[in-house]
Each structure stands twice: as structure tokens, then as C-alpha cells.
Design a protein around this nucleic acid. Sequence first.
DNA 1: CTGATTATGGAAATCACTCGTCAAACAGAT
DNA 2: ATCTGTTTGACGAGTGATTTCCATAATCAG
Lengths: 134, 134
Amino acid sequence: MEITRQTDYAIRCILYLSGKQDQPTVVDEIAQEMSIPKSFLSKIVQKLSRAAILESFRGSKGGFKLARKPAEISLLDVIEAMQGTAAANKCAVDKAQCNLSCTCIVHPVWIELRKQTEDYLRGINFENLHPKAY
Amino acid sequence: MEITRQTDYAIRCILYLSGKQDQPTVVDEIAQEMSIPKSFLSKIVQKLSRAAILESFRGSKGGFKLARKPAEISLLDVIEAMQGTAAANKCAVDKAQCNLSCTCIVHPVWIELRKQTEDYLRGINFENLHPKAY
DNA sequence: CTGATTATGGAAATCACTCGTCAAACAGAT
DNA sequence: ATCTGTTTGACGAGTGATTTCCATAATCAG
Ligand code: SF4
Ligand code: SF4
């Protein structure tokens, strides 16, 4: 379940928006503030809004803001929006990925690991994440 | 912690060797039996013997066999031998990978996730894995 | 000793995916 | 209409995984 840099950026981005609720924020600002390449960030917020985690507004006075409360966005949500799934091995996503999966003895291990990981990440949202430090 | 195909092969390979204890087995045989490209498998068993998980014997009647009992080889051992670590995010391996790590609020999450994952995988060895099915 | 057998090690080809850029098209506000 | 800022798709460098090939070294059997 390698966390890709894209996902890491996404998390930083949502973290930033958690502090600026309600008024839309421009990509440029987030990019500078969080040191993320701007054009790359464009792609990221796009994905996030398609996943209904962010809401986008075009035109002047446009930008992005959270589509739900920080407490209702979990780390797992973000990871799944960005890279599909939090599984370690392809066969834990889809049995068909490996033709041995029906007989393979290791297969259940990855399934279980995936469950554990997801449970943990589901429990972490941007409400209980944000205010602790900073 | 994406499980790479190399690691998956390594696991299948050790699984096979768990059933053939004591007499060395030739790479060719493992490759055919487990449907792994032979030349690639050569590289894999090499890594595994450098990690003291397999033992190698040259010459005729040579081959590979487990260096320890199946019960003493955990999934975590294999993963670490093959891909270094079982962490999801680079910063969980080495703080220096990210210059934000000292202030980042998400950092501890990855550390904790890594611990959980490792604990789980450490508990699974090739003794309690192998005989269940087959 | 000789020859067959098998692992070792390095170089390199191929492939897929990630990271990041660019530019043109589109939509909202004034 | 114009300005601002998002949307979208195409594109390219770079990185790492996967895989093959070959020349070399060690070991065993005769
Ligand atoms: S061999 Fe087993 S563990 Fe590996 S991908 Fe196939 S089903 Fe999953
Ligand atoms: S930003 Fe935080 S979570 Fe992401 S790599 Fe850096 S320390 Fe880790």
C-alpha cells in the first residue's frame, strides 16, 4: 500500500483546508503554503473533488474548499480517492489478479492485513488529526 | 508497503521448499513448479541466501534449501530481506526522507501503522502457514 | 584430473508507473 | 466582455520493477 507522493500531497492539502473552512481557497495559495508544485496540485485537487472530498468553484473568487466537515473525512477516504485501495498485494484487491489465488495459502494473510490497515486508517480523520499540534 | 512481485515469488519459493526439507532443490525445479521465470528466480534465491534464509550448494547435487526451520522464518523476515522494510510511507522508514517530518502531524500515523503491520507479519511463519491447506 | 552441473554476479533490455509541466478550453463574477 | 481561476488532456523525464543473458566460479562424480 505504498503511500505515493501524490497522496501525501493530498493529505497535506486537506490538512491546510481544514483550517480555512468555508471560504474557497485558490490552488496557488495551497501550493505555496504547503510547498507543492502548483500544476501537480491542480491534478490532485481535481481528483479530490471528483471523489466528493473537496468542492470546486470556478471563475474569480473561485477555488476549493472541503465538501464535508473535517471530522467526516478519514485518511482512508483520501487514500482510496487517490490510489484506489489500501491493499498491500494486488490479490487483496481483486482475486482475479493472480491465477493462484484460489489455492494460495498466503492469500488470506493479505486479505486480513488489508482489513487491519483499513480499520486503522478509517479511524483517523482530519478533526482528531488537525488541532493536536500546530 | 506494496508487496512487489519479487517478494511474492520469494514467498512462494520458500513455501515450496518448506515441503522439501533437507535435500537441496535446484532452481529449475522451483521455477517450473511455482511458475516463476527461472533467471529471475535465480536473483531472488540469491538475495534470500545472502539474508541467511536459504542456504546454497554449488555443483552437481547442489541447489537451495532452507537455512532454518519453517517455523523460524516469518513473513516479515522475507519481506525485509526482499524489499527492505514494510513501511507504507518513506517517512516511516527514515525521518530524514521528508523535511517536514519534525512538524508533520500525520507522521506519527505512519509510524504506528508500520508497527501494526510489522507485528502482524512477524506473527506469521511458514510453519503455521504451510500445513493448513494443500 | 576432467567434465558435467549448478550457483554467482554484472550488465542491460523492457516495461510500467510516478512525478511534474504545458497549453488550450471552459465557467463564473463583475 | 474581460479577468480570474478551474478543467482537461497530452506529453516527457525519471525511476524502479521485472526479466533475460552471459561469462565465471565452485563443487561433485567418474
Ligand atoms: S501467489 Fe498468493 S499471495 Fe501471491 S498474489 Fe497470488 S494469491 Fe496473492
Ligand atoms: S509530510 Fe508528513 S506524512 Fe508526508 S512524508 Fe513528510 S512527514 Fe511523512
